[in-house]
């Protein structure tokens, strides 16, 4: 479980996060949602330690990231997997090389063991047979899957995903969402997904944190979101006619 308490972060005198509290549960797909510029990426970067907040606590199963020294942070990061918006695969490495990278850096496995583990991870994300390809030869969806395979190679306790569906078609987005959800439940990981994809929100959102203008406005799950009276959240999630109709349909069915 990851707990965020009273996080405040400013850039150039402008406060981006205002006293944000949130809890992200183990074995659940935790979503951070919000409009572009709302501060959700800053929140995620603060949680993983890429950005240092001015105030607050970030507790990884009780261990405060803000009070850790460099050695402790390094140790913690070996428990973290992260999927970046642009996949962030190493261009000079093959698919297999990318997935083997964390194993090579942080384990004493033999090359054969590393290869076996990497191939297992690639099979888990349905990417068998792409071992020798380079990232530039892969589609966006395949790159995301390689990045997921790399993120889970070390059996992380915490998985962070920044906009995992950006640039993907709806069908591929659903596949990535299902994959992330399955991995979360299968390995009992604390997964935090930063998204503004409504299909993700309504599909896999087991614990949703809504950030609006740097404030945490709402917390709930994908069922509760249909009942919400929060105006900003309603405007954000049900912005299109399609989602308005989905909402009405769900509410009508719930009353029958």
């Amino acid at each position: 479980m990851i707990e965020v308490k009273h996080i405040t972060k400013s850039f150039d005198g402008k406060t981006i996060l205002h006293n944000v509290d949130a809890t992200f549960y183990t074995g659940k797909t935790n979503l951070i949602i919000g409009q572009s510029g709302s501060g959700k990426t800053v929140l995620m970067k603060s949680i993983v330690g890429l950005v240092r907040p001015e105030e607050g606590e970030i507790l990884y199963d009780g261990r405060d990231l803000m009070k850790m020294d460099q050695a402790q942070i390094k140790h913690l990061r070996e428990e973290i997997g992260m999927l970046f918006q642009g996949s962030a695969l190493f261009d000079s490495e093959t698919v297999l090389g990318n997935v083997m990278f964390p194993l090579n850096m942080f384990t004493d496995m033999s090359p054969a063991q590393m290869k076996e583990r990497a191939q297992f991870c690639l099979e888990r994300v349905n990417l068998k047979g792409a071992d020798k390809k380079y990232p530039a030869e892969l589609s966006g969806g395949m790159q995301k899957r390689v990045a997921i395979a790399r993120a889970i190679a070390l059996n992380p306790k915490y998985l962070f995903c920044d906009e995992p569906n950006s640039g993907l078609d709806p069908k591929t987005s659903i596949l990535i969402d299902e994959l992330l959800s399955d991995i979360t439940h299968e390995y009992n990981i604390t997964t935090i997904i930063n998204t503004h994809d409504m299909n993700s929100v309504l599909g896999i959102g087991e614990n949703i944190v809504f950030i609006n203008k740097g404030y945490r406005e709402w917390v709930g799950d994908k069922q509760e979101i249909y009942q919400t009276t929060n105006e900003a959240l309603n405007e954000f999630v049900f912005a299109t006619d399609l989602f308005q109709k989905v909402k009405q349909y769900i509410i009508q069915n719930a009353h029958r």
């Binding site: 993983v48 890429l50 942070i73 390094k74 140790h75 913690l76 990061r77 070996e78 973290i80 992260m82 970046f84 918006q85 642009g86 962030a88 695969l89 190493f90 261009d91 990278f101 964390p102 850096m105 942080f106 962070f160």
Partner: peptide
């Protein structure tokens, strides 16, 4: 973000 990815890995 490849450098960020390295940092996140520790």
């Amino acid at each position: 973000e490849q450098i960020d990815a390295l940092e996140i890995m520790g």
